[in-house]
Design a protein around this nucleic acid. Structure first.
Lengths: 129, 129
DNA sequence: CACTAAGTGAGAAAGATTCTCATATTGGGA
DNA sequence: TCCCAATATGAGAATCTTTCTCACTTAGTG
């Protein structure tokens, strides 16, 4: 692994939750100036391939990514307020499988993403109300 | 509703499944030349707002959309081969709700999308094998 | 140490989507 | 019917994200 990718991976550990390529690049160059945005995109593509990160939505046209502690199959719970992300298990419900079967569809992949407020932002929102 | 939007809505009825803004524009101008791509984007934005269409994925960076017969809450089953789309009911499984609850997360929105082969493409794939 | 494969930085390039602006159309009232 | 405000339109410019090019560097292997 190149020194640049190591710095990028390191910077990623410091990201609180969902982030864009540019968010991460901004953080990376604070510590290591000179690393190009293209390099960040290349590193992200490799990490996505390996399952280290996943797409969890988009923000104004930029792809939102999140680091996955787990590399096995799982889904995400995303806070729309602070961007924090939690990996969750949630197999497809029976209703989905029945619908697919009825349609004769062979399901090879599925995506489930939950959006809402995390415990912290929820408490803050209640406090404000 | 303007004449242009009527033509766009009409053309959309003829789209087989998932389509991009440009796919639809191409189809629209076959029948009614002169309608601009920006107008198609504007019409699509309005339809998405009203729930008449929904995002079902992306293809090489372009957003894939699909017409929804239903305007109530539902999800999609997308054929990765021919792009056909079927609306399905599939409430979140208990596992997902339990995970969210354990995290203290208030879920306000969720997306579930299933990808695979529709009955027709599946049969064709079997035939080829 | 040499060699090959992969990674890098900078900027160009590609693409999708949105915006601008001047013009046109719509629909509801007077 | 006519007027008016609000909204829609077309064309192309502009924006913005992401990928590609190219010349150069680095890493790892034998």
């Amino acid at each position: 692994m190149s020194a640049q990718r190591a710095r990028i991976a390191e910077a990623m550990l410091g990201m609180p939750g969902a982030f864009t390529a540019e968010d991460l690049h901004r953080r990376v160059i604070e510590v290591t100036p000179g690393i190009g945005l293209a390099t960040v995109y290349r590193a992200l593509a490799a990490m996505q391939e390996s399952g280290a990160i996943a797409t969890v939505g988009d923000r104004h046209g930029s792809t939102l990514l999140a680091r996955c502690e787990r590399h096995d199959h799982h889904h995400h719970l995303v806070c729309t307020e602070c961007g924090s992300v939690v990996g969750i298990d949630c197999p497809l419900g029976d209703a989905a499988l029945i619908s697919a079967e009825r349609a004769g569809h062979l399901v090879t992949r599925h995506e489930i993403t939950l959006y809402g407020l995390c415990a912290i932002c929820r408490a803050r929102a209640d406090g404000d109300a």
